[in-house]
């Protein structure tokens, strides 16, 4: 393998350069959140200040948008966990006709561009005369969140051996007891991880939301308005930083949850 080792210096440089390209732009957000400049995006910042944190803290519109985003993300996540788990349980349990179609159906809302999902929902709501509200936002979000829970749950169901469940029944447990003491503990970390990803997905979603929201502003919609017509750049900088932190934490947690489960199983 001498030749491969030689090539790997060049490869390493390309890989590291690629990772820098992925991460440096996000880090820049943290610098801009503290700049004293409030009318342009000048680099390097003329000075650093903590003032904008306080200004953002006292903004009711930011709090309202954040509150709506958290509400929508929580409800959508709960719906996605229920639907995604049911679907994964059925698909993993047996080979039956139309199994592939069901996988496709679950993946479709995320495989097709968001704008298709968005405008489809919007035209459906229009036809049915459903007014746009928090409810319609949640309908949209839950639909594309199902897939992440489904993916996590089905991977775990495949590893959960059927003999464990049969043993539980043989020992006289009821279906509910089996679910409570055997299936659920085995699934728990996968569902938690899937739920966190679903939460992050919903918290960040903007494309479908622009079509399904009425007058309500989720945090991404608030940010989009600022991107299109910048009015309060310093506040936007701070909000962007907060969004990075809020999405970063659940994803890191989801990673460690699924990783520990799989490594403890293999040892």
């Amino acid at each position: 393998m001498r030749s491969e080792r030689k090539a790997s210096v060049l490869l390493k440089c390309a890989a590291v350069a690629g990772l820098l390209f992925l991460h440096l732009p996000i880090l820049l957000i943290f610098l801009y959140a503290f700049t004293t400049e409030d009318t342009s995006y000048v680099f390097p910042p003329p000075g650093l200040t903590l003032d904008w944190l306080a200004v953002t803290w006292n903004r009711p519109d930011v709090w309202q948008a954040l509150g709506l985003s958290l509400r929508v993300a929580s409800v959508s996540t709960v719906i996605a966990i229920v639907l995604g788990t049911l679907c994964a349980a059925a698909v993993s349990k047996a080979r039956f006709f139309g199994r592939e179609t069901i996988s496709l159906l679950v993946i479709l809302p995320i495989a097709l561009p968001g704008i298709i999902t968005g405008i489809s929902l919007r035209s459906a709501f229009n036809i049915l005369d459903i007014p746009f509200s928090t409810f319609t936002i949640i309908l949209g979000h839950a639909t594309f969140c199902v897939v992440v829970v489904y993916n996590n749950a089905i991977a775990r169901f495949r590893r959960l051996s059927g003999s464990l469940i049969e043993a539980s029944f043989d020992l006289g447990a009821t279906g509910f007891q089996t679910f409570r003491y055997i299936v659920l503990p085995n699934l728990a970390t996968a569902l938690l991880a899937g739920g966190m990803l679903a939460f992050a997905l919903s918290f960040d979603e903007v494309i479908v939301t622009t079509f399904t929201a009425g007058q309500q502003q989720t945090l991404p919609i608030w940010m989009l308005e600022e991107l299109v017509r910048p009015r309060q750049r310093p506040v936007t900088n701070v909000v962007a930083m907060v969004v990075v932190v809020v999405t970063f934490l659940p994803i890191l947690a989801a990673y460690y949850l699924t990783r520990e489960a799989s490594s403890s199983r293999s040892t």
């Binding site: 990772l19 991460h23 732009p25 820049l28 801009y32 940010m223 991107l227 999405t247």
Partner: peptide
């Protein structure tokens, strides 16, 4: 390093490039 950017906020990424 490859997974974090997949899940980090779409709008924040665009905003970073606007800067």
């Amino acid at each position: 390093g490859a997974m974090m950017p997949l899940w980090s906020s779409y709008l924040v990424k665009i905003y970073a490039w606007k800067l």
